[in-house]
Computed example of a mutant assay.
Amino acid sequence: MSLETEAYVCKAKGEPLKLEKIVLPPLEANEVECDMVCCGLCHTDCHMCTNDWGISDFPMVPGHEGVGIVRAVGSAVSTHAVGDRVGIAWMRDSCQACEACLCGRENICQPGYQGTFLSKSAGVWGKKPYNLTGGCFSKVMRVAARFAFKIPEGVPDDVACPLLCGGGTVYEPLCDYCEPGTQLGVAGIGGLGTAAIKLAKLRGVTPTAISSSPHKKQAALAAGAKDFVCFDDDLAAWAGKFDVIIDTSPANTQPAATYLNLLKFGGTYCRVGIPAAGEGFKYDWIPLIFTQRKVVGSIVTGSKCMHSMFNLVKDNLDFLQADNPDLQNIEKVPFSQANAAMKNLVERKNKGYRYVLVW
């Protein structure tokens, strides 16, 4: 049967969140029902509330870095039990039949996965009207068990939250394009960039931070970066130095040529930060062809890499947190302060690595 709960709702484009009652659709056989404990605040939530990408539907319950406790399971669920601590991310379901889904890469589901709080304006990623009932800014959630990821014992909630989106988003290209010894450039030293540096080191990859903000140097080095490249510096010395660059920037802060010139011949530029609609990619064919550099994109992560990442984190939690004030400086705030936190994040006034909103 349907269930009434409370959630923070964005009623229309650009409007502040309001605590309101919502009604969840009936629990399906393959779903679990969770009491939500907390949720990380991702820049994507801000983009969606202002419809920067043109795929938002209102009213909307945002949130996709949620941690909750299972309190009920559907009739077909055998993988989860009441009391399990789980994380809910950007996807709530997928076809589970295509080649990508069968190998745990549901993020590139061929018919299109179902976004956690996406609806009709998102096309194949919003088949069901989950714009109102979907996101993790709700006190209770119902989601396919496959996308309620069990969080290993010992991994704190506030560490798990940012890994569910930001961590997974950078972990997948680390698995796809890097191997031990890879010289990696991480562009954009915010939540995603910090996670990329730490996770890269755990996989034996050598990360260098790339940023337009010189004041981020110490934090990047503390996170484990071997070196720091600032766009204010002479970049000629860094030309052709990197095997891979993962760009986490949520806007086109630099021309594509700036990054591609930093790659070795045959190197890969991977964009994971999603700019606003209309911010296109521009580069010339001749230098691309003659250097055999590659330009790729990557979106969130599927269940295979998500489980792998959490196992890696579980086994290396001390390393992840050691000598890294940013990972320890997660700002926990009550959900009642969600609007202020979103404003600070957009204006880059947040003091820590990530906001975590707590019920």
Rank of each mutant, 00 (worst) to 15 (best):
K21P: 05
A81Q: 14
S75W: 00
R293V: 10
F228W: 11
N311S: 15
L19I: 05
V86S: 14
S56Q: 02
C49R: 06
P214V: 09
G40L: 01
G66S: 14
L221Q: 10
A72R: 09
V67H: 05
Y8T: 15
Y177L: 08
R142H: 15
Y113P: 06
D247G: 05
G115S: 07
I245P: 05
D284A: 15
V313H: 02
W238G: 07
V82I: 14
H43Q: 09
F147T: 12
Q337M: 13
Y177K: 09
H215Y: 12
T79I: 11
R354A: 14
T194V: 09
F335Q: 14
C38I: 05
G135K: 03
R146H: 14
D157L: 00
E106A: 08
A29S: 10
G352T: 01
A236K: 04
G190T: 04
T258W: 14
A160V: 04
A160F: 01
G68M: 04
A196K: 02
A276D: 13
S336V: 10
S94Q: 06
S78P: 15
A223L: 10
C42Q: 06
F310A: 07
G185S: 02
G115C: 05
C95Y: 11
F149G: 01
V170Q: 02
E179S: 07
Q337V: 13
E65W: 01
A223T: 10
L118P: 00
S94R: 03
C136L: 06
P59V: 05
F335V: 15
Y355W: 11
M306N: 01
A257M: 09
G352E: 08
Y355T: 13
D318E: 13
G63K: 00
C49I: 09
S213E: 12
G266W: 00
V205L: 12
A239I: 11
A122E: 04
T182L: 02
G352N: 07
A256T: 11
N311F: 03
V295R: 05
L327N: 04
